[in-house]
């Protein structure tokens, strides 16, 4: 599949990680719909936000330890 979506990341430290975050940012920005357009769940998105920032933090922490060694 041709991926037309040009992702421009000026000076990004970790291109692939940030691209995934950006994809989820945009894809999930309008919220999530469950079963037709009846229920809009933003709570789920908040949980994901927590999860992803926790992942980022642990990656950063791991990198800092490596740098110090």
């Amino acid at each position: 599949m041709k991926n037309q979506n040009v992702i421009t990341l000026a000076g990004a430290d970790s291109e692939s990680d940030i691209s995934l975050l950006d994809i989820l940012d945009h894809v999930l920005n309008a919220g999530v719909v469950i079963q037709g357009s009846m229920v809009i769940s933003l709570a789920g998105v908040d949980l994901i936000y927590l999860g992803l920032s926790a992942v980022l933090t642990s990656v950063e922490t791991a990198l800092k330890h490596v740098e110090k060694e």
């Binding site: 599949m1 989820l24 894809v27 999530v32 719909v33 469950i34």
Partner: peptide
């Protein structure tokens, strides 16, 4: 699933105007 959603929608957008449904929109 999010990346799959993005690939499909960005492919469709090249064919004309598209209104992307919210992620996880399911009709029975």
């Amino acid at each position: 699933t999010g990346v799959r959603h993005q690939r499909v929608v960005s492919e469709l957008v090249q064919r004309g105007a598209v209104l992307p449904a919210r992620f996880g929109t399911v009709f029975h």
